[in-house]
Design a protein around this nucleic acid. Structure first.
Lengths: 192, 192
DNA sequence: CAGTTAACAGAACAGGTATTCTGTTAATTC
DNA sequence: GAATTAACAGAATACCTGTTCTGTTAACTG
């Protein structure tokens, strides 16, 4: 019947994730995605709808990166304080290497969630992933008395908050040293 | 010689602070400030320059609110753990009342600092104010052994980070309960 | 192999917002 | 009190960026 698509939508989405992640929604135009992906402008509109829908699709795809790449250690059955520390150390390591992208979902929460409730819903989903991961590690740590016996739910939300802080702070021009101290302080208070 | 200005630049600035604070740089146009202040568009351009300069001037004026209104308790000579707790309780109180504006400087750090180094400098100034205030309270608390004996600078940066978290988290659609738990967790870990 | 149908490439369109221009008014100074 | 000069009010401009239109091409189906 008709001609078939020449590009892979998921590849475009990966490109979009990279760009939105690096530049943010406001600073990344559809034209940037068009240029970087090499796909025709109209093709993108055809496949994804408008810019907002493209952003949401990218945000959803980003969830996989969070789950598979960043939360794996925390989701392990034997995760505890060490896993929590390792997680944040890794984040600090990325910062030390000059990675200032932070977390796409955390940034979306501030930049887009107030203006797009569908974005808010996706962010909430991603946060649930994070919360479950930290929840697992906190339970392990509490069971082994590795961390202070504070209200479990508070601890979990506290760590999610720390993650969100880190995921957005990093994007401002705040000196790396300050961010590191902030995280080290947060971790230093944790042990029993 | 010539006609004199009919409006008070500082009053315009106060209006601009309110609007930028409530809506953010991106969602607040010069037209909003024009409408709310009743001052002529050209008058504002004449007095402040362009939108970016107006924003920076508002950001600088906002510093006074932070210093005089929000940090007074922490800057008191006898400030300690109680002052720290009272400070964050007050923030949570505002949240509970539906105030979702957060902190203009904290938001500016994420929204504008990466694109405007002058904004970054003003934000850094405001953060120094915060840091000094927390520094005072932490020293008081440490001297009286009210909080855990963790590296002083880490504690300070930790609290500045918590403040920044709160100041931006509040703007996303994150449920108030989660934010509250996050802060309560952070405070619960503090006492010796 | 031919027809149909949708993707392609690029230009054109549209809407919103920052910015500036024009005539007019009124305060200040001599 | 008159001249001057800058602020006022509103419209007009410019620009950026998201969105859509046009002709063209090529893949699938019968």
């Amino acid at each position: 019947m008709a001609r078939s698509r020449e590009f892979d939508p998921n590849a475009v989405l990966d490109t979009a994730v990279e760009l939105f992640w690096a530049k943010g929604y406001g600073q990344c135009g559809v034209a940037d995605v068009v240029d970087a992906s090499g796909v025709a402008r109209y093709g993108i509109y055809q496949a994804f709808g408008d810019k907002d829908a493209l952003y949401r699709a990218a945000l959803q795809r980003y969830q996989r990166i969070v789950r598979d790449n960043f939360l794996a250690g925390l989701r392990s059955p034997d995760a505890g304080l060490a896993a929590i520390e390792a997680h944040f150390e890794r984040m600090l390591g990325m910062l030390a290497e000059g990675d200032r992208r932070g977390c796409l979902a955390c940034v979306a929460a501030v930049e887009r969630a107030p203006l797009d409730s569908e974005v808010a819903a996706i962010v909430e989903d991603t946060l649930t992933l994070m919360r479950d991961a930290f929840s697992n590690a906190v339970d392990g740590a509490l069971a082994r008395s590795e961390i202070r016996a504070v209200e479990r739910d508070w601890l979990i939300e506290y760590l999610v908050g720390l993650q969100r802080t880190l995921g957005t702070l990093v994007r401002s021009q705040t000196p790396a040293k300050e961010i590191e101290q902030c995280v080290r302080g947060a971790l230093a208070l944790l042990p029993a």
